[in-house]
């Protein structure tokens, strides 16, 4: 584990930018988001996770799939340097790893070229993820429900602890270890640093809510799939897309053409199962006409369907949806209600 002082951060970022496109949390209007940076001065240091999600780095809200003219189709330019992300939280890193499972291949399919998503892969390939320990998880965090926690370093390439005046960097993955080995700064963390981490970690963990046991959630959901309780659970939802667009793991998308028959582009953009038009067919038939069905779909996808296909929940407990929901739909309450609900 090496340590760098706050003032040495710019040297680290400069070193990174030599071989990576570096993304980090920056101010974005009144909010914070991950954007490409060229120097450490742009970084927004906050105790909390960013208001916008990090999936945008690898799976932008809208991206050009190809352009076309009368003469044919042209793929977008190559990605260039691999991507490094500074300032992720452990939940953010986990969400990126989850999305990789979706985009790198489809679940039960053999490793077949046709199921690979070239746009994701181009960005994700050789990426270096620095995830930060959360010293002060806000009250909306519930990552500990998902066998994780504010100091969960698994899934990181490099795990970073901010001690208040320096960063302690620990290589976790092979790629992370290799990077740190090649970094010129070699000041090693000592016992005092480890003690500091221990104190910070205990404090951080004390802020987390009591763990809710989720092992029965998947099966319970299937059991109540057709139950009238969904009317109650969905009553206040207004079917906007704030939760899905702010969510680091939601990955439904739309594909649209912009242009005319001679010239234009095909873009893909985030879409959301909360919208009425998401499943509406050209004939007018809509399998999810009612808001109830759409809310159910989102909950089922995260805590049942995805688990069926990928053996993990499509949720990291980052709490972003809880913060932004205009009508205070709180996914923690929904989960708890489902777990304790006696079906009709």
């Amino acid at each position: 584990m090496i340590k760098i002082k706050y003032e040495q951060l710019s040297a680290l970022i400069d070193f990174l930018t030599e071989s990576y496109q570096v993304y980090a949390p920056v101010k974005h209007g009144k909010e914070t988001a991950f954007k490409k940076i060229s120097s450490a001065s742009e970084i927004n240091k906050s105790k909390y996770n960013t208001s916008l999600n990090p999936k945008d780095i690898f799976f932008p809200q809208s991206e050009v799939m190809f352009t076309y003219t009368k003469n044919g189709i042209k793929s977008p330019p190559e990605q260039g340097k691999p991507i490094a992300v500074w300032g992720l939280r452990t939940c953010d890193t986990k969400s990126i790893r989850m999305l990789d499972k979706v985009f790198a291949n489809a679940y039960q399919m053999p490793d077949k070229e046709m199921y690979k998503d070239p746009y994701w892969i181009a960005r994700y390939k050789n990426c270096l993820l620095f995830s930060f320990a959360c010293n002060e998880p806000p009250s909306t965090c519930f990552c500990n429900w998902f066998n994780s926690g504010p100091y969960d370093s698994s899934d990181s390439d490099i795990f970073v602890t901010d001690t208040g005046d320096e960063y302690l960097l620990e290589g976790i993955s092979e790629r992370g270890i290799k990077f740190l080995a090649g970094y010129p700064e070699t000041s090693q963390a000592d016992q005092t640093d480890l003690d500091k981490i221990k104190v910070l970690r205990e404090k951080a963990e004390s802020y987390m809510p009591p763990v809710v046991e989720l092992s029965g959630l998947k099966d319970k959901l299937l059991k109540i799939w057709d139950d009238p309780v969904w009317d109650e659970l969905s009553a206040k939802c207004i079917n906007c897309g704030a939760c899905a667009y702010i969510c680091p793991t939601c990955h439904c998308f739309d594909m649209r053409d912009e242009g005319n028959e001679d010239k234009g582009k095909r873009v893909r953009l985030w879409d959301c199962c909360m919208y009425q038009l998401f499943t509406k067919e050209a004939s007018g038939h809509n399998p999810r006409e009612l808001s109830t069905y759409r809310v159910r779909q989102r909950v089922m996808h995260k805590y049942n369907y995805f688990v069926e296909n990928y053996q993990q929940f499509l949720c990291t407990g980052c709490g972003r949806c809880i913060k932004v929901c205009p009508v205070n739909m709180d996914i923690r309450q929904i989960i708890q209600k489902i777990l304790t609900y006696k079906e009709v």
């Binding site: 906007c240 897309g241 959301c272 009425q276 038009l277």
Partner: peptide, 26 residues
């Protein structure tokens, strides 16, 4: 200001006056 919009349509959906069955944007 509007470059920050993420087009989630929360503004439209909470708005009582936005009750069109099909919004022009859809």
């Amino acid at each position: 200001e509007y470059s920050k919009c993420i087009r989630c349509y929360a503004c439209r959906n909470v708005c009582p006056s936005c009750y069109c069955n099909y919004c022009f944007v859809d």
